[in-house]
Amino acid sequence: MLSIDDARSMQKVLPYVRGHDWQMEVLLDPNGDFKRAMNVNLIPHTFLLDGTGKVVYQHTSYYEGLEDQLYEIIKKIAAGEKIPTH
């Protein structure tokens, strides 16, 4: 997960993440350089990368259940199948 927290709220991220017991790696983008480079307009924005670091799927905004669909897409990619275009 990449947090969009800028330098003013950066110090809050670690106690927040640990306090919620989130078991994932969290990176910070204090000056928003990465967000701009990746053309992110809305938060959250999901990127799915393959083993070579290539973006294979993107999705903007989140609705309940998106994680299940992501899981299906990951399984398809792992099996070498094409992912649906929608």
């Binding site: 670690l14 106690p15 993440v17 640990r18 919620h20």
Partner: peptide
């Protein structure tokens, strides 16, 4: 800040 697994201040 102080933080540990499941707790953050």
């Amino acid at each position: 800040s102080y933080s540990t697994k499941g707790f953050g201040f």
